[in-house]
C-alpha cells in the first residue's frame, strides 16, 4: 500500500510538470504586465507634469508629480454636463432594459406559452438580420424622437441575446413544482412573477444591469446620430471632441488662469490623460464590486439557449 502510494506521488511530480508549472507562472506574470502597463502608464501620466509627459519621460511612475491635469478637468463645465446626462441616460435606460427583458424572458421560459416556438423565431431572426443604419435612423426620425432621450433608450431597449440568457436562467433555477403549487393556491401569473420569480433572480438581474449599464455608459454612436443639442450630449460625445478631435471649448472653463494654462499645447495633451482616468473610473469601480456576478453571467450566457 505504502509503496503504491509513493509511486503515484512520483508520477505526479514528474520533471516536465515542474518545468510546466514554472513556465505557466512566468507566462501569467508576463500577461499581467502586458495588460497592466498601458493602464498604469495613463494613470502615471495624468499625475505628471505636462513637460515630462510631452518629452516621453513617463513610463510606470509619475514624473514631477502634479495634479494640474485634474484641476483643469474639474474646471471644465462640459465634462460635468456630460457626466450628469450620462448618469441620467444610464439609470433610466438600464431600468427600462431590465424591465423589458424580464417581461420577455419569463414567458419564454414557460413551456405552456402558446406559440412559443414561432414567437421565439421572430425574436431570434432579428439577431441574424436587421434593417441597418439608414432605415433605423429614418424610423427614429419619423417617430419625432430625434434629439430626445428616447432616441437613446428605445432603439436598443431589448437585446434578444440577453433575453435568451435570462430565459435559460429561469429554466434552470426555478423548478416547475413551485409554479404548480402556487397555481393550486390560486396565484396569478403576474403575482407569481412579482413575488416569486423576481425575488429569486437577484444574481441575473445584477448581471443584466451590468451589461446594459456598460452599454449606455460607453455609448457614443447613437448619441452622435440622434443628439444634436450640446446640452444633451452624453459624456462620451464630449470625450470624443477633446480626446479624438483635439478641440477644447474655452467658453466652458470658468477660471481665467486655467484658460491660459490650456492654451499651451502640452497642457491639452495632459488633460487627455486625466480625462481618461476620470471618465473610466466609475465603471472600473463598479466592475471590481460585481466581478463575481460578471463571470457568472457570461457563463450562463455560454449555455446553449
Amino acid at each position: 500500500m505504502v509503496k503504491y502510494h509513493s509511486r503515484v506521488n512520483r508520477i505526479r511530480i514528474n520533471k516536465s510538470d515542474k518545468v510546466f508549472d514554472v513556465l505557466i507562472t512566468l507566462i501569467a506574470i508576463t500577461g499581467l504586465l502586458i495588460v497592466l502597463y498601458p493602464l498604469m502608464h495613463v494613470v502615471a501620466c495624468s499625475f505628471s507634469s505636462a513637460k515630462a509627459v510631452q518629452s516621453g519621460r513617463v513610463s510606470f511612475y509619475p514624473v514631477d508629480f502634479s495634479t494640474q491635469a485634474y484641476e483643469v478637468v474639474f474646471d471644465y463645465k462640459d465634462i460635468w454636463i456630460g457626466y450628469l446626462n450620462t448618469i441620467m441616460y444610464t439609470v433610466v435606460g438600464t431600468t427600462l432594459n431590465v424591465v423589458f427583458t424580464i417581461l420577455a424572458a419569463y414567458p419564454f421560459s414557460r413551456k405552456d406559452l402558446i406559440g412559443r416556438g414561432i414567437i421565439m423565431k421572430i425574436y431570434v431572426f432579428t439577431m441574424l438580420f436587421s434593417g441597418g443604419l439608414i432605415p433605423s435612423y429614418l424610423l427614429v426620425k419619423n417617430l419625432h424622437l430625434l434629439n430626445t432621450s428616447w432616441s437613446l433608450w428605445l432603439p436598443g431597449l431589448l437585446s434578444v441575446y440577453n433575453v435568451i440568457v435570462m430565459k435559460t436562467y429561469y429554466q434552470t433555477t426555478i423548478p416547475n413544482e413551485l409554479l404548480e403549487s402556487a397555481q393550486i393556491d390560486g396565484c396569478s401569473n403576474r403575482r407569481f412573477l412579482w413575488s416569486v420569480v423576481i425575488p429569486l433572480s437577484g444574481a441575473i438581474i445584477a448581471v443584466m444591469v451590468l451589461f446594459y449599464g456598460i452599454g449606455h455608459w460607453n455609448n457614443y454612436f447613437s448619441a452622435m446620430l440622434y443628439i444634436t443639442d450640446k446640452s444633451k450630449y452624453p459624456l462620451q460625445l464630449f470625450l470624443r471632441e477633446i480626446l479624438i478631435a483635439n478641440t477644447v471649448d474655452y467658453t466652458s472653463l470658468s477660471g481665467s488662469e486655467i484658460k491660459e494654462l490650456l492654451k499651451k499645447q502640452e497642457m491639452k495633451l495632459l488633460l487627455k490623460y486625466s480625462l481618461i482616468v476620470v471618465s473610466s473610473f466609475p465603471m472600473l469601480c463598479i466592475y471590481s464590486f460585481v466581478q463575481k456576478y460578471f463571470v457568472k453571467g457570461v457563463m450562463i450566457g455560454s449555455l446553449k439557449g
Binding site: 460607453n218 457614443y220 470625450l239 480626446l243 466592475y287 463571470v295
Partner: peptide, 13 residues
C-alpha cells in the same frame, strides 16, 4: 481581475 478590466473601457477612451 486585471485581464477582464479593459472590457469596461469605452471605445472613445
Amino acid at each position: 481581475m486585471v485581464t477582464y478590466a479593459p472590457y469596461f473601457i469605452s471605445t472613445v477612451v
